[in-house]
Design a protein around this nucleic acid. Structure first.
Lengths: 77, 77
DNA sequence: AGAATTGAGGTCTTATAAGGCCGCAATTTA
DNA sequence: TAAATTGCGGCCTTATAAGACCTCAATTCT
């Protein structure tokens, strides 16, 4: 079950993801196209609404042309 | 659906996880205790049998006393 | 040898991620 | 201002992760 603490962690991850996407100047649909993940799903991830799997993390990294570990390097807060 | 390519990626991740655990001198049960993940599940992860979620990745990092991103830093191969 | 530890697979239930589509309000652009 | 783009939430089905427990063969320890 997804705890309130998890919620917070996912939200923080989402915020960072959003930042990385913006920095790369991509719209949700552009990013969607770049990694084959539905744009609405990416929106949900950025909102911290879903607990993504390992493979989804890798897909996101592809779209951002970054190393997967980079998506985890942000201030936990 | 989990593709053969995903399978390979998960397997590689698992091998690395196993290495990290061994390096820390932990048995599956010890690690299980350290991160509240059933030992049989950790075994499955190491075997690349499951596509773990973001929160599970964080839990594993706790047991290894490492930054989550570290679990992703290995030779993709 | 006997006991304990360890890795690992199987099984069952429940929660939820994935995948895909729709629509709409708010921007942004033409 | 009309038209496109964008973010985003809802909905549905299917696949599968999570979580918990059991068993057992192979090691390792005593």
């Amino acid at each position: 079950m997804i705890t309130p603490t998890d919620k917070k962690v996912l939200k923080r991850f989402g915020e960072n993801l959003r930042k990385l996407r913006k920095d790369k100047g991509l719209s949700l649909r552009e990013m969607s196209y770049a990694c084959s993940i539905d744009n609405s799903k990416i929106a949900k991830i950025e909102k911290g609404m879903i607990n993504i799997t390992f493979t989804t993390l890798l897909q996101l990294a592809v779209a951002l042309e970054a190393h997967p570990s980079m998506l985890l390097e942000y201030e936990p807060e």
